[in-house]
Amino acid sequence: MEPIQIVFLIGAALVVVSAVMVVTRRNLIHAALYLILTLFGVAVIFVLLQAYYWAVIQVVVYIGAIAILIIMAIMVTRDVTGETVEPFNRNLIGAALLGVMAAGVLIWSLSDWPGFSALAPAAETGEIVVQDLGVQLFSAEGYLLPTILASVLLLAALIAAIRIAFPNETEEDN
């Protein structure tokens, strides 16, 4: 077995096991920490695909920002000493049924897809895709309009968040 396959199996096992842990832990902070492990495993798989940029972005955005935000939100809104929650409720059977059905539909519809048996074509270039990505995002023929629209939306959200967090002047002096 190639070492890259061993690394893939370790990374994939990490993702699957820690994803299961996320939904079964009773301690919410533990669940969030396992979520970080899951996201890290996904970054490992990106590295194996030579998509270094996506691997690094995965870590920066999901672990550096979103996971921290989740942990902070849990700590601020819940009992910080680690409240335990019951991860399952009455909807367990229904949700499981729905999950199995969705998986079945996906497997059924993908069963005659040739991609499973055929080898994927080799990537055109080595790994330099960041420049291409930038050119695509900011060229008029590419994705300039969606990029700008998304930026404006994010800016609006940012300003709205600042407005909400802004102290109310009438209450300040009391």
Partner: peptide, 27 residues
């Protein structure tokens, strides 16, 4: 790496996770 600087920024963000874990778990 062709994304070396970004990589340094990414692994640096683990230190926040460490601070958070240490502070919370010490009770």
């Amino acid at each position: 790496l062709s994304v070396g600087i970004l990589y340094i920024a990414a692994v640096g963000s683990f230190s926040i996770v460490a601070v958070m874990m240490a502070g919370w778990s010490s009770n």
